[in-house]
Design a protein around this nucleic acid. Structure first.
Lengths: 200, 200, 200, 200
DNA sequence: TATGAATGAGGGTTCATTCAT
DNA sequence: CATGAATGAACCCTCATTCAT
């Protein structure tokens, strides 16, 4: 990467970082592009060299963050010595929840901006922002599973929405319980959901 | 209620109705107070006689709508001949989902604006906007239940978040499945969640 | 007219006046709405209470100015003791040229912004900005004329374009001659054009 | 001309061509320098190596186009077997009108940007953009004429403005008539103007 | 109470121009 | 010569809020 394009990447990253902080702190609509560029230390016009508008940077940010979250979890899972689909899935879920717990800003951002469509895109489609190929891995995972599920995508969708909603309130407001207190309940519920979707 | 205060109530209702239509149609941030008053057929200044600002009308609207949704479900449940806590809970859940399905605008509005805190307020706290007293009913319901749950509020919270998230995507985008196709999966999952939270 | 709507009319007039001065001084595209409101002594937002955008105020300004120019000329002609179509037409043309000569700003504005379509609208169609009914007068004038012309509208169109172009350069730049020096040539040319369009 | 300066000339020509297309298509103020360079396939900075700003390229473009229009007409007239000043003048006028009619873009551009001053410069002054020497030819033409005019430059000026205005509306909007329908009227009017300016 | 004209800060966006490469 | 990333002033327009009527 040349010196010039390195500088460009730095600007883009600075814009991403500023946008993320502001979106999570003030919300999407209370963040102006002026705010983003000011925080990033670039001129307002520079924003438009890299992004079409606020929606554009938001969507690309989601792809980045969601992809990274999943990637970390999968990488950790690969290193752990796990057997069984259920065990693996729970591991991924726990890992992602731990990550989210450490990063409340990310929770806010994702819960307010993430629809399943965007999330699935981030996971299953490769974009400019995500390098990894999750797609083949996803289907592999369920094909090789000794336990069969009625509809893997529906299962993942339901778990994702479940966790997303629950974590959002719990992590942000400790309401009705803190995430630490909630975890046992949650764990049981997730296992129950999984088992309810097994074939046979 | 005097003639004058009837007129006032009509204006307020008109503002509520206009705000709801516009919030769901255009989104909160794309709806201006000018839009609301124009649609309601009152002057712009009149808005400020009844509401503090846009956030104020939104929160009060949520309390109204969420309360009504639950009230309808409970009323219907009372009329139905049901036995058992699980059966009753499922009935309420189904009823609410049916209502939401018939009213996608309401789904948009609630999913984008509803946090558990607000929702619980609508359910457990009586406000200016909700007449019913849900609170005592709520505790009664679980106290009298033959099946005991570890933590009824957590259970309700988890189910609420689960349904809210799942319905949102499904009803609005038919993604990953339409709500009709999704229902059997959802039903199984809810029962599983409930049972996972039983004591003993 | 109530006190309130009088104030409104004053603001509108102030905006018209400011816009006219700035359009003629700086040109349409070098005049910002901010400039107009600043000069008119009103807030920027006030502009949008009365006009859609810059094009809107320009078109309405043209209708006003062109209408007034013609109206003055016709009124003067009515008072003068004139006989014969040619004599009357020449009188109107002279009167308008005199008016334009006294008001170079108007020349700039009209020559840069006026197309025949707009001009004809200003003359023949009644708008919000022009009260007089020129239309019936126009057709009356040629119907009653003892001299018949092949196509009255074409004749008027040609004379209008001729004068418009010639006056523009002459009044603004005294090029190739001052309007005063040019007048005899112009007079001869206009008479020649008229006669060339007579029937028979 | 060296190979290097040939390349330079090509870039300059590309910029001229792009600017012309965009000015006529979008208008002067809706065309950005970025647009021009993009269309020309050069970098934005390159523009400033050849032109001072947008006004500079516009004025030079006018000189080019107006000069070419006249040059073509004169060349064609020289080849035709014509006798008499009036006949020759009419031939030139007709030729230019035909050219303009074939090229509405040119009409837009010239009518919106052309003042007599610029036009005369293009005709009478030699610039960087026009090679031909029209000046001596112009005075020769009227000196040798068997018919004498009161003021040849005024005559040309009046005809130019007349045609310019009339053609503009007619060619662009077919209003009040199409140029084809208008031509007979126009022809008569021009002859009339000429004759009105003869000496004696 | 009810009105709606008026405000002006602040939003998103464009673009002529510069300058390090 | 040529590039195009970067700038930031300036644009148009919206809108929550106020206040005289």
């Amino acid at each position: 990467m040349s010196k010039l394009s390195l500088k460009k990447q730095q600007k883009k990253d600075a814009l991403f970082a500023s946008a993320f902080e502001l979106f999570t702190g003030l919300g999407l609509d209370n963040t102006s592009i002026s705010d983003i560029t000011k925080k990033a230390g670039v001129a307002k016009g520079t924003f438009y060299l890299y992004f079409k508008d606020k929606l554009d940077i938001r969507n690309r940010l989601i792809a980045r963050k969601a992809g990274a979250l999943l990637e970390d979890a999968i990488n950790a899972m690969d290193k752990a010595d796990l057997h069984g689909t259920e065990e693996k899935l729970l591991y991924i879920v726990d890992h992602m929840m731990d990550d989210l717990q450490k990063n409340p800003a990310l929770v806010i951002f994702m819960s307010k901006n993430l629809s399943w469509g965007l999330y699935r895109n981030a996971i299953l489609e490769s974009t400019e922002e995500t390098d990894m190929d999750f797609k083949s891995g996803f289907y592999d995972f369920f094909d090789k599973s000794e336990v069969k599920y009625k509809n893997p995508e529906v299962l993942i969708f339901m778990i994702a929405e479940f966790i997303s909603g629950v974590c959002n309130n719990s992590i942000l407001y400790s309401d009705p319980l803190s995430i630490e207190e909630l975890k046992p309940y949650l764990h049981d519920a997730i296992v129950a959901i999984m088992r309810s979707q097994q074939v046979g």
